[in-house]
Design a protein around this nucleic acid. Sequence first.
RNA 1: GGCGCAUUCGUCUAGCGGCCAAGGACACCGCCCUCUCAAGGCGGAGACCACGGGUUCAAAUCCCGUAUGCGCCA
Length: 484
Amino acid sequence: MDERVRVRYAPSPTGDPHVGNIRTALFDWLFARHTGGDFILRIEDTDAARATDGALKSIMESLRWLGLDWDEGPDVGGAYGPYVQSERLELYREKAKDLVDRGYAYYCYCSSERLKEMRQEQARRKQPPGYDRLCRDKGYGYSEDPPPVVRFKMPLDGETEFHDLIRGDVTFANATVDDFVILKSDGYPTYHLASIVDDHLMEISHVLRAEEWLPSAPRHVHLYNALGFEKPHFAHLPIILGPDRSKLSKRHGDVSVLQYRDMGYLPEAMFNFLALLGWSLDDHTEIISRDDLVHHFSIDRIVKSGAIFNLEKLTWMNGMYIRNLSEGDLVGRIVQTLDDSLSSEVPRPISEDYVGAITPLVQERLKTMTDVPALMDFFFIEELDYPTDDLIQKGMDRAETTLALESALERVSGLESWSTESLEGELRPLAEELSVKTGQLFGAIRVAVTGRKAAPPLFETMAVLGRDKSLHRLRKSVHSLRES
RNA sequence: GGCGCAUUCGUCUAGCGGCCAAGGACACCGCCCUCUCAAGGCGGAGACCACGGGUUCAAAUCCCGUAUGCGCCA
């Protein structure tokens, strides 16, 4: 078919989208951009009980963060609006009534008590749950009290077959599908009716959605037919799993996209990672740009089975992306992170030049942006706080350490130029003179100057830190060794 | 319980009948580099391709069953 590709991401506004939802959006978006089609955002808020305030905002924020722009949607409008289902209720009611009038659906007045009893009975007899079709052939008209639901008449026998772009031909026996509700007694449509009506009206060409919708696909096929709508292409995407192999959900902990943003992951990395969760280009590509992804994306390379969200790999990938960032780009992000995370005692604004000097020292050490303060706060803090014993290196005692640090202090304070080279030129020979290993001497100085046992390369660090701070910290370390 | 989908290293995956005594990546282990930590380089361990039958000269790849997992239906 050579129709225009139009795909939609249609979340319910029930909270922050989690990575599974957003991966679906990502595939939709990739497919739209690859084909030059349209990506539409539609809000399915007909389940009023579950709708959450602010959810729409966080949906859009999540999409924007990943750079998934939409061509039509609640905020930007479009020729097929409105894009919020609660503003389209009349449309669904009309269609429901039309289906009743034409004999494809019927009013059902069964009370919830009766339905509950029916289900209990079915459970007791180990029968599959489902409506028993009591009202099906009664020909009830509409009456207000009590308000009825509208149920769709599924064929009682035969099979429904449809083609799935990922799974091939899928077949269901009609007898296993009950007469499902399409319009609730409060006049709100169910997902089934609303999504089919909207997908048709919005001229959606491909429905890419999570695999959990596969069992309801035969219902949709019959709805399309009864309504006289042409069916879109279906592709049921594999589900994202938690570590226990069940469908990823809130109980798995950190699952919302926005949380990953707050945990210091780069949108580029998340984009890349999510694209490779259920899709691959070939047998070796791991790091792939957004443009290449758009260029190469195809539905037939989507995998069939669910995938566990592997945080360790995401973290590795994030580190790769941080390392590949241009220095200027990284500096900007680090300044922002520091501004957000450093104690208020550190004067603002954070100097971009200073951060620019530090950045090369930490770039290859960052895995996430939340590592930033831990890796470089000693550049900003005035007084370091560390256990004095940390100064004493393996194989040395207190006296030797004190002597070593004093000697280092002395050597270095006379330096004309304070640079990586001059510092190394003084300190490396010193180790030999003191007959200690360079690792021991440098280790002691490192702790004195940074307060940490692990830090960026020592001489670079001291050079950037500057003469005053470095000398002050060395002096302080000697004092604390003497005092305790 | 019924129906559906899935099943290749711990994890993500390549593989669409012979190139596979199964390739890549993360994680793990070792070595190298090295002032620590990283990064990087090299190497290692890790999958009898869920199991059992077929089809074929030839199957991880096709077909059928079974098992397991997951999903949906309340």
